[in-house]
Design a protein around this nucleic acid. Sequence first.
DNA 1: ATATATATTTAGGCTCACCTAAAATAATAT
DNA 2: ATATTATTTTAGGTGAGCCTAAATATATAT
Lengths: 195, 195
Amino acid sequence: MTSLAEENYLKAIYKLQEKHGDIVSTSALAEMLEINAASVTDFIKKMAVKKLISYQKSKGVRLSEQGRQIALSIIRKHRLWEVWLVNKLNFKWDEVHEIAEQLEHVVSNELIEQLDEHLGYPKTDPHGDLIPDAKGRFAKNSSKPLLDHKVGDKTKFVGVAEHSNSFLQYLTKTISSWAMNCWWNPLRNSITVSR
Amino acid sequence: MTSLAEENYLKAIYKLQEKHGDIVSTSALAEMLEINAASVTDFIKKMAVKKLISYQKSKGVRLSEQGRQIALSIIRKHRLWEVWLVNKLNFKWDEVHEIAEQLEHVVSNELIEQLDEHLGYPKTDPHGDLIPDAKGRFAKNSSKPLLDHKVGDKTKFVGVAEHSNSFLQYLTKTISSWAMNCWWNPLRNSITVSR
DNA sequence: ATATATATTTAGGCTCACCTAAAATAATAT
DNA sequence: ATATTATTTTAGGTGAGCCTAAATATATAT
């Protein structure tokens, strides 16, 4: 059984691997989890023993296949719960993250599969992020950055790359007359769009 | 903030007070929570300091008003989640308890109020137990024990007093041609009914 | 009333997941 | 290449929530 702490570490490592490449440093993890780096070192040693990650002293960590599958199952749950909160309970897209962070740790395969069905097997969450299936597979993402479009192009917003509540609220306000969802890369300071 | 352990203790004390009167013994609590009595003694001392319960050495515990309110909010959440699982996700009434035990600890007032609305403000859970409102108040229960009825009486099952999965399954099978819900008192070995 | 049985508490210990401070290692600047 | 800075690890410690074994308090039987 994987603990709450382990699940949070696995999710954080997954996200950091996605963003900054294959290997994740102790300090990056510590910052994301808001946990002291010394504590992180401690914990990842234990996770390595359990084969959830591979770890070489002073050289950062990487998810094992087992760790990746668990991380994906947490992400799947998180995103399905977000869809539920928005589509069924009328929450706004900037109000769901904190609640989903709690719900994602509830353990029951039947629950999550029933929820998936109840929601009509959504492919993406309210921010446009893809929802992995029960086996951890993603559908293909056909969306393109806004920058790849020209002025006058007709297109459809499907999601954002920046998830902070403040940005989501900003977007809701400034483009409330547009579609609700769009891709935005804060590094490039760009809002982007798909077909 | 109340911890997971505290919430479980409060819920257990509430249930034992309901069944066996005002004061709850260390051993009764220990048995219900499947925790060693020595650990329970330890823990209730801390809860007393926090004014969640009143406690006199060797004389058992009783919920404070604050403790009672928290217990009721957990019970409210538990029962609302059970309604959701049965009515929206098609679970059977004998499949929902374990999942609701996890969901009841999710913290968000907005969530629980939205859920209540989503479900149409149900008064009872799938087993017929009353759902307290946000302030911890119960609606009046007009149901009567089956024993109070005579052979030939026309009536409506609304709930069970015994919640074990095995009994629920038994009932589902044996009276699947009747209504689904009924009151049953295992101490008196009786199934009972309301109008 | 005393002996026996049962319930409760005390004392000491454990694991988990965190912490700080100091030491060791790695990266960067001169 | 060496000094400085930043990162990572080690060592020692903490609180929460549990444990067992032993001591004490309470209830029951004779």
